[in-house]
């Protein structure tokens, strides 16, 4: 199987139970969800779901068609294979013994992230970026001692052909 990561951007009606229909479709048909982000768009009647799944080409084709079939789904875009921007945010709580504090702040500087909470024994960092950046910073922080981590999962949008970034919806 040539399983590959696919990012789907799904516009749905902002109604109760819609997310459950989508998640139920994935579990019921044996598709997987790597990450999932949901929030309202500019139009409060519409929500955008950004969903990452691992699947081969015929399966992802089925997934897109099955999603379209749900009455509350307005549009499904597959971003993988076209030009898009993606971001993920993590909150990383890290052990911050005095001897490591300078090192942690150096990493924060290099990766252009922020310290959002400081304690006697820890820092909480806010990191935003694509997957590559996330992996890189985690690899650097692991030896220092990560206590907890919370990730948003990927959100993504098409790049406009003129290079601009707009959210039409």
């Amino acid at each position: 199987m040539n399983e590959q990561k696919h990012i789907l951007s799904i516009l749905v009606e902002n109604k109760p139970g819609v997310l459950s229909r989508i998640v139920g479709l994935f579990s019921g048909r044996g598709y997987n969800i790597e990450s999932l982000c949901v929030a309202e768009t500019m139009d409060p009647l519409v929500s955008r779901i950004t969903l990452v799944t691992m699947a081969d080409t015929p399966v992802v084709e089925q997934i897109v068609k099955q999603l379209h079939k749900l009455i509350n789904v307005i549009k499904v875009y597959e971003l993988t294979g076209s030009s898009y921007v993606q971001r993920e945010m993590s909150l990383i709580k890290i052990q911050a013994k005095p001897e490591y504090r300078a090192e942690i702040l150096r990493i924060v500087d290099i990766f252009r992230c922020k310290v959002v909470d400081v304690g006697q024994e820890h820092y909480t960092l806010e990191v935003t970026g694509d997957e590559g950046k996330m992996t890189a910073i985690l690899n650097l922080l692991k030896p220092i001692g990560i206590k907890e981590i919370a990730k948003t999962g990927i959100i993504a949008l098409f790049r406009e052909s003129n290079g601009g970034l707009k959210d039409k919806d």
């Binding site: 139970g17 139920g24 479709l25 009455i71």
Partner: peptide, 14 residues
Amino acid sequence: IVGITRPCTKHNYL
């Protein structure tokens, strides 16, 4: 019942 029948109806409503 809306939860139960979600995967076996074309659509459902409460």
